[in-house]
C-alpha cells in the first residue's frame, strides 16, 4: 500500500460549515472542529443536528452549494482540500477518500444495475477494460461476502435486501482502493443482526487494506467497540475526545450523560436517566 502511512493522513483544523438561514444570515452547523487522523478508526458520535454528518461531507467537498466551508487547514495527504480544483477533488473522491451513506434504499440509483454502479467508480479512477472492470467488481463483491456475485451484479437495487444493498454500497466505494473511508451511519437503516454482520465485514476490510476510517454514528456503544478513538460532538463542536476504552473516564457532562443512558442487561432503573442539554455547552 502506497500513500501516507503515518499519522496525519487527514488534518482538519477549525472546520466551520455554515448555511444561510431564514433571517438572511448564516447559521453554523459545524463550529470549529479540529482533529488529525492516521490509518486508524475514528468515531464521531453525536445527536441529530450535532454537525457530525456535515463534518464528513465537508471533508469530501459534498457540502450543499449554498453552504459555506471554512477552516484554518484541511488537508488530505498534503493536498489542500479547501483550495484544490474541482478536478483534483473529483480524483480524490471515490479514488482516495470514499463515503458510505446511511440507507442503500436511497443511496443506490434505482434504475441502474448494482454491477454497473460498482464498475462506474472504477471507470472514473482507473483505465481498465470492461472485462477487467467486471472481474474486479465481482472480486470486490466477494470481499463484502456476497456469495453469488455474478447474480447480484445484474440485479437492481430494489431486488436486494437492505443488508445486501449496503454491502454493494461498500463494494462500490472500495473498488478503487481508497485510503480513507467515511462511513456516515452505515448501519442505522439495517436490522440489528444485519448491523453486526456488516460491521464485521467493514472491520475486516479496513484492517486488511490498512485504511483510515471515520465512523459517524449516534450509537455510542457501537462506536466504542468499533473505533480506536471517539470524538463526541454537540451543537457543532467537539466537546470531548476519548480513547475507545476510556468511555468511563469521560469528563464532559454531555458525554457522561450519554454513557449513563446506556442500558445494561439485568438492571432496573426507575426513573430511566434522561439526557441533560445545557445551553452553555453550545457556547
Amino acid at each position: 500500500m502506497n500513500g501516507p502511512s503515518v499519522a496525519d493522513m487527514l488534518v482538519v483544523d477549525d472546520l466551520r460549515v455554515a448555511f444561510p438561514n431564514r433571517e438572511g444570515g448564516m447559521t453554523e452547523a459545524v463550529r470549529g472542529v479540529s482533529f488529525r487522523l492516521g490509518r486508524e478508526r475514528l468515531g464521531i458520535v453525536g445527536e441529530s443536528g450535532s454537525g457530525k454528518s456535515q463534518t464528513g461531507r465537508a471533508i469530501l467537498g459534498l457540502t450543499a452549494p449554498e453552504g459555506r466551508v471554512t477552516a484554518n487547514r484541511m488537508e488530505f495527504d498534503g493536498i489542500d482540500l479547501l483550495h484544490s480544483s474541482a478536478r483534483q477533488r473529483r480524483a480524490l473522491r471515490g479514488g482516495r477518500i470514499a463515503m458510505v451513506l446511511q440507507d442503500p434504499k436511497f443511496s443506490l440509483n434505482p434504475v441502474m444495475s448494482i454491477g454497473d454502479q460498482i464498475v462506474e467508480t472504477l471507470d472514473a479512477h482507473a483505465r481498465v477494460s470492461r472485462r477487467e472492470a467486471r472481474d474486479r467488481a465481482l472480486e470486490t463483491l466477494r470481499q463484502v461476502q456476497i456469495d453469488n456475485p455474478e447474480r447480484v451484479f445484474d440485479l437492481y437495487p430494489h431486488e436486494v435486501s437492505g443488508g445486501m444493498g449496503q454491502r454493494a454500497m461498500i463494494a462500490m466505494m472500495l473498488i478503487a482502493d481508497p485510503d480513507l473511508l467515511i462511513a456516515d451511519e452505515p448501519t442505522s437503516a439495517l436490522d440489528v443482526t444485519v448491523q453486526l454482520q456488516l460491521l464485521a465485514i467493514l472491520d475486516r476490510l479496513v484492517t486488511d487494506r490498512g485504511m483510515g476510517l471515520v465512523f459517524i454514528s449516534h450509537d455510542l456503544r457501537l462506536v466504542s467497540t468499533f473505533c480506536d478513538r471517539i470524538l463526541v460532538m454537540y451543537a457543532g463542536k467537539v466537546v470531548e475526545e476519548l480513547s475507545a476504552g476510556g468511555l468511563q473516564d469521560a469528563q464532559h457532562p454531555y458525554t457522561r450523560g450519554l454513557v449513563n443512558c446506556l442500558p445494561r442487561l439485568g438492571e432496573h432503573r426507575h426513573p430511566l436517566p434522561t439526557l441533560d442539554r445545557r445551553p452553555e455547552w453550545a457556547l
Binding site: 443511496s107 472514473a124 454500497m169 462500490m172
Partner: peptide
C-alpha cells in the same frame, strides 16, 4: 441521496446529471 453517492464516487457532474 444517490446523487450524493455518485458525487462521492468521484463521477463528473456531466455523468451525474445525464446518466444518473
Amino acid at each position: 441521496e444517490y446523487v450524493i453517492a455518485a458525487r462521492a464516487k468521484g463521477l463528473t457532474e456531466t455523468r451525474i446529471i445525464w446518466r444518473h
